[in-house]
């Protein structure tokens, strides 16, 4: 199995000389199984160049797994070339919207409505299929197995655990570690904390012994208090969770759009020293970078 980052930026694309090293496209990861099965995790703007790169493989069967439907994770989908080409088979997996009770297909079709995009979903030439994902569900794509888990974000967000040939790749999508909504002197504090602790250990189990973990690390530890509840992780929380889960290799992603390459490296260096990264048995930590291909 191998994978390639096509977009590592959070919230909104951030092109320009300040971000050219790590890249300005929003979230998109290409994962290939041992038999070249093609899985794409999220359809941020990075999916546009990915689509161009796939032309030699047409006609093509591929599966897109959407972690959640915030713009930065779906905005590239209408410009993803394979959906316009007859003969291609595209299956999109994602969460239904429980509030409006719309399926993932309906949620995504809305960004191709007349006011937003010239081509309607019904006019796509590829054969399109949409499947709602439920928590804990396993989807088999050739020799690749994908299991989902609901993580904490301001909308339903599924993390995906991708396994093939004994190797494990995990992507969180956007995830903030759940926190206690009560103060320590509130009567509900202790019970709530117990539920939070249980949920956190379930998430760690979901990461357990992964060969690669790609994890939302939007904020520095210092930035976090003013952004608590926004749905993203920190350098500190990602480092500690990866250690606890016994992960081998970690890529920190969802870089802040305002963070230049230099500032990103500075934040990473500071986190490494304040969390004493590099101790014995530590995972290998890296910043996710657009264009990088990793063999697992």
């Amino acid at each position: 199995m191998h994978f390639k980052f096509w977009g590592v930026r959070g919230s909104i694309p951030a092109p320009g000389p300040q971000t050219v090293h790590y890249g300005g496209n929003t979230t998109c990861i290409e994962v290939r199984g041992d038999n070249n099965e093609l899985l794409i995790l999220d359809g941020g703007t990075g999916i546009f160049p990915l689509g161009q790169s796939l032309i030699p493989e047409f006609p093509l069967k591929l599966h897109i797994f959407i972690t959640h439907t915030h713009w930065d994770h779906i905005q590239g989908l209408p410009m993803f070339l394979p959906i316009f080409i007859p003969g291609n088979e595209v299956t999109i997996h994602g969460a239904a919207d429980p509030i409006t009770q719309r399926d993932i297909g309906e949620v995504l079709a809305r960004q191709m409505e007349y006011a937003y995009f010239p081509v309607r979903e019904a006019e796509l030439n590829a054969s399109m299929r949409y499947l709602n994902i439920q928590e804990g569900q396993s989807v088999q794509v050739g020799g690749v197995n994908v299991r989902s888990m609901l993580l904490n974000h301001p909308v339903l967000n599924f993390g995906y655990r991708v396994e093939c040939g004994g190797k494990v790749f995990v992507f969180t999508g956007d995830h903030e570690w759940p926190f206690n909504i009560y103060n320590e002197d509130d009567p509900d504090y202790a019970d709530y904390q117990q539920m939070v602790d249980e949920q956190c250990s379930r998430v760690v189990e979901f990461f357990r012994d992964a060969d690669v973990l790609v994890i939302d690390t939007a904020y520095t530890d210092a930035e976090y208090p003013s952004r608590k509840g926004w749905g993203h992780g920190t350098f500190g929380s990602s480092i500690e969770a990866a250690r606890e889960a016994g992960v081998r290799r970690v890529f920190l992603t969802h870089h802040e759009p305002t963070r230049s390459d230099a500032a990103l490296e500075l934040a990473f260096d500071e986190a490494r020293s304040s969390h004493d990264v590099g101790r014995e048995r530590d995972p290998q930590f890296d910043l996710a970078r657009e264009g990088v291909l990793i063999e697992i």
Partner: peptide, 23 residues
């Protein structure tokens, strides 16, 4: 089924921990 959670949710707090406060 929209959430498809593997365990029954028996309180609002429990729901918040699993599906998030914004939802």
């Amino acid at each position: 089924a929209y959430f498809g959670l593997s365990r029954p949710i028996n309180s609002i707090n429990h729901g918040v921990v699993y599906v998030g406060i914004n939802t």
